[in-house]
Simulated scan of single mutants.
Amino acid sequence: MTGGPLEGVRVIDLTTVVVGPICTRTLGDQGAEVIKVEAPGGDILRYLAAGSRSPAMSGKFINFNRNKRSIVLDIKQAEGLAALKRLIAGADVFVSNVRPAALARAGLDHASLAPANPRLIHCGIVAFGTEGRYAGRPAYDPVIQSLSGVAGTFERATGEPRFVPMVMTDHITGLVAAQSIGFALFRREKTGQGEAIEVPMFETMASFVTSEHLGAATFDPPEGPSGDARLLSPDYRPLPTSDGFITIRPNDNRQAFAFFDAIGQPELKADPRFATPISRTEHAADYFTIQVEALARRSTAEWLEIFAAADVPAARYNSIDDLLDDPHLGDVGFWQADEHPTEGRIRRTRTPVTFRGGMREEVLPAPRLGAHTRAILAEAGYAPAEIEAMLQSGAAA
Rank of each mutant, 00 (worst) to 15 (best):
M1E: 01
M1S: 05
E7M: 10
G8I: 09
V9E: 12
I12P: 03
D13F: 03
T15F: 10
V17D: 12
P21M: 07
I22T: 15
C23D: 05
C23G: 04
T24Y: 10
R25N: 06
T26E: 14
G31K: 02
E33D: 14
V34P: 03
E38M: 07
A39N: 12
D43H: 04
D43Y: 02
I44R: 06
I44F: 04
Y47K: 15
A50W: 08
S52G: 11
S58H: 05
K60Y: 08
N63C: 12
N67G: 04
N67Y: 01
R69G: 08
I71G: 09
L73P: 13
K76Y: 08
E79H: 03
G80H: 04
A82E: 11
I88L: 11
V93D: 06
N97S: 09
V98N: 12
V98Y: 06
R99C: 06
A102M: 14
A106S: 08
L108N: 10
A111V: 07
S112G: 13
P115R: 01
L120N: 02
V126G: 07
G129I: 01
T130I: 00
G132T: 14
A135E: 08
R137E: 12
P138W: 01
Y140W: 11
P142Y: 03
V143L: 13
Q145P: 06
S148Y: 01
E155N: 04
P161T: 05
M168H: 06
H171N: 07
V176E: 15
I181H: 04
I181M: 05
G182H: 03
F183A: 15
A184E: 08
E189P: 00
E195S: 15
A196Q: 14
A196S: 14
I197P: 14
T204R: 10
M205I: 15
L214E: 08
A217E: 13
F219Y: 15
F219S: 07
L231V: 07
P234T: 02
D235F: 11
Y236K: 12
Y236M: 15
P240I: 04
D243C: 07
F245S: 13
I248F: 09
P250W: 04
R254S: 08
Q255T: 01
A256I: 00
G264R: 10
G264Y: 07
E267R: 14
E267N: 10
D271C: 04
F274Y: 11
A275I: 06
E282L: 13
A284E: 01
A285T: 11
V292Q: 12
R297P: 00
W303T: 11
W303Q: 13
A309V: 01
A315M: 11
N318Y: 15
S319K: 09
D321M: 10
D321C: 00
P327K: 01
G330V: 00
D331A: 13
F334T: 13
Q336W: 00
E343N: 14
G344C: 10
R347P: 05
R350I: 04
T351D: 12
V353R: 13
F355V: 14
M359C: 03
R360I: 00
E361P: 00
P365F: 02
P367T: 12
L369Y: 07
G370V: 01
H372M: 08
E379Y: 01
A385S: 13
G394E: 11
A395C: 08
